[in-house]
């Protein structure tokens, strides 16, 4: 039998999250975000959070809900263009923001989970992003040193998960979730469908259960679409 990681709900899963902690939250835009845990964080009203997430939600959904309650002290993201409240808090100086290139963000999370303290990348060389960072040339090209990221809690969303914490993501809802799952001291996974161990094909597991400490069956997923684009038949 595999180690059982199941907890009852978002309330139980988020136990131990306190003011001032660093959280990683999976998702790209509103796609693949841990909706249940975000709602729980709003309820808990924990403050002074540092949130590492590619985006900051929209004004009334996703991390925008935490911004609205001024629960976030610092955001570490790559793109925040969809959120007016975010832009307002940032330009007024209420919110500290560290914008980093998307590939560097992904790799910094991966490195954090993989035990690699830092790495060199060409992304951002010669820009504001490189300020204060070590530059070294490899193969005739300048690179900057980027450090790994870890978090007190990583909160991810998967399509299916089993009691052992193995996760399978659906389509582009995968995005940052696998790397963040690796980089949390405690990783919480909320899933649309929680299945018994043995039900997931081991060949198809995206995140092995070792990276997940708590898993629960999520409820009432809204899965909001940011830009509904369609074509006409015929």
């Amino acid at each position: 039998m595999a180690i059982n990681k199941v907890v009852a709900n978002a309330g139980e899963a988020t136990k131990g999250i306190e003011n001032g902690m660093t959280l990683m939250l999976g998702g790209f835009g509103l796609c693949g975000i841990p909706e249940n845990c975000i709602a729980e964080l709003v309820k808990l009203n924990v403050k002074d959070l540092t949130c590492i997430s590619n985006n900051a939600g929209v004004d009334d959904f996703g991390l925008g809900l935490l911004l609205h309650q001024k629960q976030i002290k610092k955001m570490i993201s790559s793109y925040v263009g969809e959120n007016d409240e975010f832009e307002r808090q940032m330009l007024s100086g209420e919110l500290e923001v560290d914008l980093i290139p998307q590939g560097s963000l992904a790799e910094r999370c991966r490195a954090g989970g993989a035990g690699i303290p830092a790495f060199f990348t060409p992304a951002g060389y010669g820009t504001e992003v490189a300020e204060g960072k070590e530059v070294r040339e490899f193969n005739g090209k300048p690179h900057i040193l980027e450090h790994a990221l870890t978090a007190d809690f990583a909160i991810v969303k998967a399509w299916k998960g089993d009691t052992a914490g193995n996760l399978v993501y659906k389509a582009t809802a995968r995005n940052f979730n696998p790397m963040m799952a690796m980089a949390g001291k405690i990783t919480i996974a909320e899933v649309e469908e929680l299945v018994p161990e043995g039900d997931l094909d081991p060949n198809h597991v995206h995140t092995p259960g070792i990276f997940v400490q708590r898993i629960f069956q999520g409820v009432n997923y809204e899965k909001r679409i940011e830009q509904r684009t369609v074509r006409q038949k015929g």
Binding site: V80, G81, E87, S104
Partner: peptide, 14 residues
């Protein structure tokens, strides 16, 4: 206007 670079810096660097 501060929207962030998204993936643009990684893309243009490589």
């Amino acid at each position: 206007m501060v929207k962030g670079m998204g993936g643009a810096m990684d893309l243009v660097a490589s």
